[in-house]
């Protein structure tokens, strides 16, 4: 009698254990994906010496790069890229804008690209800001805040200088000065990438 009962119980037990395994697999899978997402969302800032994260820009009208309405980091390879994150509502940005424009005027014919990336800004305000400072170097909005996310900026202004090979050569948190730009760009031009 007990043998028959044991035989009847066995399939039930095995189906229960399969269910248990399935439940654990689902739970662990979800936790793994959640962990992966959290790790990605808190990725460290790209450091000096690391390859710069790729980006695509759709420039503001009148602020294109070499006549192109859109460009990527790949398109700028072989040139020094000075990427400045800013916003029209940012008070500190006002300190550096003239210095950036002056440096752009100085280096634009020496294989140096200056790119302004407007972070979480309203387009008419961005345009008004650029007109106020007579800015002429290429500018683009940070659509979907994807670039600022990839570069893990902590605020504005922040400036990343990328060398001719695509490596990050310098990171400036806060306003950048003309002398710093001269020093870093001069060094990179001397090294030749």
């Amino acid at each position: 009698m007990s043998d028959i009962a044991n035989r009847l119980e066995q399939p039930q037990k095995s189906s229960r254990s399969y269910l248990s395994i399935a439940v654990w697999v689902i739970v662990l899978g979800l936790l793994a994906v959640l962990g992966w997402g959290l790790v990605n969302s808190t990725a460290p800032r790209p450091e000096v010496g690391e390859m710069a994260p790729k980006f695509n820009l759709e420039f503001f009208d009148g602020y294109e790069w070499e006549g192109k309405t859109a460009a990527s980091l790949e398109d700028m390879k072989g040139q020094i890229v000075v990427m400045n994150f800013w916003a029209s509502w940012c008070v500190e940005c006002r300190v550096e804008t003239d210095e950036l424009e002056a440096a752009w005027q100085k280096y634009q014919d020496q294989g140096v690209v200056f790119v302004g990336v407007a972070y979480s800004d309203v387009e008419p305000n961005s345009i008004a800001y650029m007109e106020e400072f007579d800015v002429t170097f290429p500018h683009a909005p940070d659509l979907g805040t994807r670039i600022s996310h990839d570069y893990e900026i902590t605020g504005v202004p922040e400036t990343f200088i990328i060398d001719q090979t695509g490596e990050i050569a310098y990171v400036q948190i806060g306003p950048i000065s003309g002398s710093t730009l001269d020093q870093i760009i001069g060094q990179l031009l001397a090294d030749g990438g």
Binding site: L30, V33, S120, P141, L143, G144, T145, R146
Partner: peptide, 21 residues
């Protein structure tokens, strides 16, 4: 959402990683 990313939405769309959350 298009201009500044889904992160600005208090109720992000239930898709991708958000769906798991």
């Amino acid at each position: 959402a298009r201009q500044y990313g889904d992160g600005v939405l208090a109720n992000p769309p239930k898709s991708g990683f958000t769906l798991i959350l």
